[in-house]
């Protein structure tokens, strides 16, 4: 017993002192931080700068593939009551709902089907305007009775339950809050799809860092939660509200 006690005491003293002396040593000839040479700094930057380029520029370019929409659609033109007869509604939202309708059961129709277009563009022989896009639309889709294979910018994952009518009719939200100024654009923006997840770039946001300035810049779960919280609807942040 005596031997054991003395040996442990000895190890402890010897080990600790030695470790301490190695790292923070006040002994002569040793320094806490050795001065780096110029070469070392060059190599550090040679690692740093390309990786910054990869992370900020190449990665986003490689991650997203750009896909063209089947044709252009001029939202600004279609929402202008002075040009288009029948676009009614006092607010922008009401005008959006003219084509992006709620079905009878309250579900949201999303991107309109050809039937909706045919309500006005009913005759492939007589265009309503003079744009080449309309001509293409009439020839390719109306005459052939083909649905336009639009690519949706805002499709959420299948595990997310989202009710448009709850937000628009009960929550009194404008379309713009989430979808931005789509209604005022003349050209459809490029559709970019995440090669890994298959979702549109607009869900993460066009900024690779996820930085947002507008409410519509990003559509991740945190953004839903942020808005719920701001509007004193924190109870709607419970998991099963959306992930049913």
């Amino acid at each position: 017993m005596k031997n054991q006690a003395s040996s442990s005491q000895k190890t402890s003293k010897f080990g600790l002192t030695s470790l301490f002396n190695r790292f923070i040593s006040f002994e002569k000839g040793s320094t806490f931080l050795p001065p780096f040479s110029f070469g070392v700094w060059i190599f550090f930057l040679a690692g740093l700068i390309p990786s910054l380029i990869v992370g900020w520029i190449i990665y986003p370019m490689a991650l997203y593939s750009k896909q063209p929409q089947p044709m252009n659609f001029n939202h600004a033109l279609h929402l202008n009551p002075e040009i288009v007869d029948g676009i009614e509604g006092d607010t922008e939202t009401e005008r959006c709902l003219f084509c992006h309708t709620f079905r009878e059961d309250g579900t949201f129709a999303g991107i309109p089907k050809l039937d909706k277009c045919l309500e006005c563009h009913d005759d492939p022989e007589s265009p309503l305007g003079e744009t080449p896009e309309e001509q293409e639309f009439l020839n390719k889709y109306v005459a052939e009775e083909q649905e336009i294979p639009w690519l949706s910018y805002f499709r959420q994952p299948d595990c997310v339950y989202f009710s448009h009518i709850a937000h628009v009719k009960i929550g009194d939200q404008d379309c713009e809050t989430c979808h931005g100024d789509f209604g005022r654009t003349e050209k459809l923006p490029a559709y970019k799809v995440n090669r890994m997840t298959g979702y549109s770039i607009d869900i993460w946001g066009r900024n690779i860092a996820g930085y947002k300035t507008n409410t519509w810049d990003r559509m991740k779960m945190d953004d839903c939660a942020e808005c719920h919280t701001e509007n004193d609807l924190e109870e709607n942040n419970a998991c099963f509200v959306c992930h049913k």
Binding site: G47, V54, G55, A209
Partner: peptide
């Protein structure tokens, strides 16, 4: 060896200063 470590440290620091790992 010190230069290689510097390269790796630089690379790691750089990548972590981009959104890549989180995204």
């Amino acid at each position: 060896r010190r230069h290689f470590i510097a390269l790796l440290v630089g690379g790691a620091a750089g990548i972590n200063a981009t959104p890549l790992p989180w995204k």
